[in-house]
Design a protein around this nucleic acid. Structure first.
Lengths: 207, 207
DNA sequence: TCTGATATTGTCCTTTGGGGCAGTCACATC
DNA sequence: GATGTGACTGCCCCAAAGGACAATATCAGA
């Protein structure tokens, strides 16, 4: 499946021109006249895609849209494109994770380079997010008690200590522990700790 | 201890002027006429510090110096300062991890804001690096065999499997395992896995 | 009121991990 | 040749974890 490029620009003639160039290069293209149009379309993360975004557009600005998308949890990489770049905006956009910041006019070669990088990054980001999402989903099925036990397990406590800290018996902890391993779909403590670490559950300074 | 600002700029009058302003603001200042001068001085990571760096200087350019410093493992945050900013350079510098990219003339307020951010980031980066360095140092004391056992332990293998994979006995694995726990100075499998995860030793797709 | 989810606990047994004690073997260094 | 280090291993014992089977208690809903 070809990559999908979401083009957001208020200039009709620019949109059609860039869309033609990108389609020629083998990409699927979706165009939007405003940031709000793209938000309304709610592009999915399901396929390799990126956003080609003008900085100065009526209504929500490019950076505004970037902020909204990040807040909504999107991992779509953004390539900014602008006629006139000012340094603070550039710095801010890149710091916020934009894939690139290009100035018009732009050569097809440069543009396609940037798009390829963006699509590649989206791929890895999606894969990574997919794994984490799956872990988080499992984690969400834990009951309160199971979650407490989970937290103590991955911090290296033994059942006896956990039982004491939770004011219950060692046998009960074993039962919860079993549930945790089952629900998280892991077969070893090592896997469980790996996952907890990747989800940022383990504080570096708590031992 | 006040923050230390390394100022790299080939313009004598600018260096002295900026040094005066920074000292007034309560910082320690070291000045360098060229990138090479700073490399020769080999500033240490031991105290809160940052680099205020002109992009265009004779010899090694600002971005060149940035590349060298990153390659050498420095965690000193870099604030670029330039008379004329071009977009590709700005993008590249920020992507490479520069703390900020400012244009001359710069207000003291903006400058000090940037320096404060840089110093704060340096602090956390140093703390984090310190912890990792300590883990790495412990890891380096493991013998080949212990390291093999370590790798298998943190991937969730049980002693029996490790013994089989290494073609040795379970008792021997236990002995190595003991050495590993001892040398890494941890008291639980969970801690060991945490460390391995933070050092990037566990591949996400190996289970 | 009956049901399902959650939390709790017991007994019994097996597997796994941890470690003391003791000893062999190879290899390098002094 | 003595010494030291790393790798290897057996026997024995204890602690911790895992799981089978069984059971009680609470509470929210249907």
């Amino acid at each position: 499946m070809p990559g999908l490029v979401h083009v957001v620009d208020d200039d009709d003639s620019f949109r059609t021109a860039i869309a033609r160039r990108l389609k020629l290069a083998g990409y699927d293209v979706a165009t939007y006249a405003s940031a709000q149009d793209l938000l309304d379309a709610a592009p999915d993360d399901a396929r390799p895609a990126c956003i080609l975004l003008d900085v100065r557009i009526p209504g929500l600005s490019g950076p505004d849209l970037q902020t909204r998308l990040i807040a909504s949890g999107s991992t779509l990489p953004i390539i900014f494109l602008t006629g006139h770049a000012d340094t603070p905006t550039t710095v801010q956009a890149i710091k916020a994770g934009a894939e690139d910041f290009l100035t018009k006019p732009i050569s097809s070669e440069q543009l396609i380079d940037a798009i390829e990088r963006a699509l590649a990054r989206h791929d890895t980001a999606r894969a990574q997010r997919g794994r984490l999402e799956s872990f988080r989903a499992h984690l969400a099925t834990l009951t309160q008690r199971e979650r407490q036990v989970f937290d103590l397990i991955v911090r290296g406590r033994i059942n006896k200590q956990i039982a004491h800290e939770l004011g219950t018996s060692e046998r009960t902890v074993k039962a919860h522990r079993h549930q945790v391993m089952d629900k998280m779909q892991v077969h070893s403590l090592a896997e469980l700790v790996s996952i907890a670490e990747r989800l940022g559950i383990i504080d570096a300074n708590d031992r």
